[in-house]
Design a protein around this nucleic acid. Structure first.
Length: 431
RNA sequence: GGAAGCGUGGCCGAGUGGUUGAAGGCAGCGGUCUUGAAAACCGCCGAGGGCUUAUACCCCUCCGUGAGUUCGAAUCUCACCGCUUCCGCCA
């Protein structure tokens, strides 16, 4: 959520910045709502003040044993108008809130302006794609060849966009997650967390998935509300949601910042609107595991924290010896809540290209404002903190990258050195 | 699922219809004292919003959430949510 004050102060400027990311701000509507709000709110407060003052007089008069019928009639006269306004005011405020809730974050000034993925800017690269002297297979062929990857059975059990791992491949999947968690907790100073995989609507609103992106989420009915409406739990699309919401409605002491958490969770995405894309293999699934890094920091240090967090995610790929590149997303390609995003793209030999394996973002105060997540600043006043997160990394896609980059001519796969302790010393997965 | 109890400011904890946004304590901040610190003493000290150049006044709202009764509600009524304890069931 944007600060309503910035819209009041510089509506045209905000509209212009939002336009760079393809969002048309309805400035006329905002001004209408704002004008209406102002009239109703000031009048309501005026009447409330009058009522309060008069009611106090009644109390005083009664204490002295005086007759109060005249004053009581006076207050009664306020009643009708006040009651109407007290109904109207929350309606207008709710409308304004709904208006603000679907406005994306302002891109940071350093973000390249662009329309799509094609306008993203590569910042740096690591490693050289390996040269193969045999026909490269993709991860599906490799995994199925090793008898450890079984999409047919997954489809029977659940449906399309699910996968089933067996034996050493299932263990490799677990090893990757373990390795990532250990690295981030032992080397990068993150606190490991275990969090709910089903969350309430407030949490989804807090991080920005709701109200705009409900169709991307899986939800399960939970209870029937007072007006007969069904209340839902939502399956988390990323651990960002439960972890970031830890600080919702909190005021954390200054000395607790920065807070750094890591969580390994499954992620659930409906992938509505991605029909036909990445239908083969494990790249785009309804369920996948991810190790997520989340930081809550002082506003002054959030951009330093973003570079740091990006580095933490990169470390994993470096230790695994996987070539990658980092791109800074342009205004048109960034997610709804982000002010700045770096994507890390890992080299996939079978696709002969780099594919996203991590997305690291600074949300500045956008999520914090929705969540009312604050810290007590040096002056002792509550102030919105900044939130960041990034994948460190997507486990399924990392498995894909390991299989493809470490494949051998005979169909076996070498295990990267850092993973061998997690694989019981195994050096390669063979048929 | 059944029964009982409870939800008050960063924390603990008074408060059962009238100048109560809320006693008291802790923590925090400022000061006196001290070579310094501690102790003691004095003062300050909730949040959101409106108005505004203003973190100055002034005003509004908030005592789990939402409705209701009333001129007036933290205090009364109803519903919901959450927590605690006991019983039942259960991985």
């Amino acid at each position: 959520m944007l600060d309503i004050q910035t819209l009041r102060n510089d509506l045209a400027g905000v509209a212009a910045r939002l336009k760079t990311r393809g969002f048309e701000l309805d400035a006329v509507r905002f001004e209408q709502l704002e004008a209406e709000r102002k009239i109703i709110q000031t009048r309501t407060q005026e009447l409330q003040a009058k009522r309060n003052a008069t009611s106090k007089l009644i109390g005083q008069a009664k204490a002295k044993g005086e007759d109060t019928t005249a004053i009581m009639a006076e207050v009664g006269a306020l009643g009708d108008e006040l009651k109407q306004l007290e109904v109207k005011l929350p309606q207008v405020l709710t409308e304004m809130d709904a208006f603000l809730a679907v406005i994306p974050n302002l891109p940071h000034e350093s973000v390249p302006v662009g329309k799509s993925e094609a306008d993203n800017v590569e910042t740096h690269k690591f490693g050289e794609p390996r040269k193969f002297d045999f026909a490269v297979q993709d991860h599906v062929s490799i995994g199925e060849g090793l008898g450890g990857l079984d999409f047919e059975t997954a489809t029977k059990i659940a449906g399309a966009r699910f996968s089933l791992l067996k034996g050493p491949l299932a263990r490799l999947h677990r090893a990757l997650a373990q390795f990532m968690l250990d690295t981030h907790t032992e080397k990068h100073g993150y606190t490991e967390t275990y969090v709910p995989y089903l969350v309430n609507a407030d949490s989804m609103r807090g991080t920005g998935q709701l109200p705009k992106f409900e169709e991307d989420l899986f939800r399960v009915p939970r209870a029937i509300g007072e007006e007969g409406e069904i209340k839902h739990f939502y399956l988390i699309p990323t651990a960002e949601v439960p972890v970031t919401n830890m600080v919702r409605d909190e005021i954390v002491p200054l000395e607790k910042l920065p807070m750094k958490f890591v969580a390994h969770t499954p992620c659930f995405r409906s992938e509505a609107g991605s029909y036909g894309r990445d239908t083969r293999g494990m790249i785009r699934q309804h369920q996948f595991d991810k190790v997520e890094l989340v930081q809550m920091v002082h506003p002054e240090s959030s951009y330093r924290a973003l570079e740091e967090l990006l580095g933490h995610a990169e470390t994993i790929l470096q230790k695994l010896g996987l070539p990658y590149r980092v791109v800074k997303l342009c205004t048109g390609d960034m997610g709804f809540s982000a002010a700045t995003t770096y994507d890390i793209e890992v080299w996939l030999p079978a696709q002969n290209t780099y594919r996203e394996i991590s997305s690291c973002s600074n949300f500045e105060a956008f999520q914090a404002r929705r969540m009312q997540a604050r810290f007590r600043n040096a002056a002792g006043k509550p102030e919105l903190l900044h939130t960041l997160n990034g994948s460190g990394l997507a486990v399924g896609r990392t498995l894909v990258a390991v299989l493809e980059n470490y494949q051998q001519a005979d169909g076996s796969v070498m295990i990267p050195d850092v993973l061998r302790p997690y694989m019981g010393g195994l050096a390669a997965i063979t048929k």
